[in-house]
Design a protein around this nucleic acid. Structure first.
Lengths: 137, 137
DNA sequence: TTTATATGTAACCTAATTAGTTATATTATA
DNA sequence: TATAATATAACTAATTAGGTTACATATAAA
């Protein structure tokens, strides 16, 4: 399952992308606007920071700035940064097919099903979400 | 995430479907053949039984029989019987959009992504898996 | 130069879920 | 009546999810 933290990260980036490029916003402001616990916002900004998408400046008048082009960040990327690799079944996490089978029909089906899902998420960028507005599910 | 139990249930039904219609097999035999803990097989057969797909006869010479046409049972149905409703995000479990918004762009995207995944699982039947063999991932 | 305000980092906590076990009841055959 | 099978329910250990707490660091303004 895609976690709430991953959703939150998407929402945070969307919020940042909804302002003119270079605008600085505080974690607290994001948290209040999007109804996310402040501590979680801070925690997730550490992830977006490590991904190079955001940077922060400390102290009074400090805040968070979006560093990347929101059109270049898609939902799948954010989810995987926060949650780690996506897998709709445990099977898909193991490198080798179960019990050393050379072939397993189920694995292929899980993989296909997951790929269809991921394709949708890859096609939606943070910019798309910011333009659509209301991304706060 | 689709649980291992749901996978097991699919495998159990596939095993049953791999014999001539009406054949009786013991839980123990299924468990050994497919390397699933016997107790889990028994537990999962309670679910397939409730769905009307299987029935069991007790006592010596007893066993489990597949009651339904395996071509009429698809993967999605089995997963939902075992795991309950599928949701790739928590958002999709709540009946109403978060925070009483009339519109939320994320929800629609989660829904689309999930539907693509489910379409794949709906198109694969237990019969397909039995014919493909090796469904034991 | 001190104070207030902001980000950054790590450890911790609780509830729910997952995967599996244990125990016991029931039924049918030999 | 003993045995072998399914049926049902309760329990358990390990992991994950979602969030909190505590503390460190940097900077602007007083």
């Amino acid at each position: 399952m895609i976690t709430k933290k991953a959703e939150y990260a998407i929402i945070i980036l969307t919020e940042l992308a909804s302002y003119p490029p270079g605008t600085k916003i505080t974690s607290k402001a994001i948290a209040e606007k999007r109804s996310i616990p402040v501590n979680l916002v801070v925690q997730l900004l550490a992830v977006t920071r490590e991904a190079g998408w955001t940077s922060g400046t400390r102290g009074p008048a400090g805040g968070i700035r979006l560093n990347s082009d929101p059109a270049e960040i898609n939902m799948r990327q954010v989810i995987e940064k926060v949650d780690g690799p996506i897998g709709i079944t445990r099977c898909l996490f193991s490198a080798t097919p179960c019990r050393d089978k050379t072939h397993c029909s189920l694995r292929g089906i899980w993989s296909t099903a997951q790929q269809k899902m991921l394709s949708v998420l890859e096609e939606v960028s943070i910019k798309d979400l910011a333009e659509a507005g209301e991304a706060d599910c």
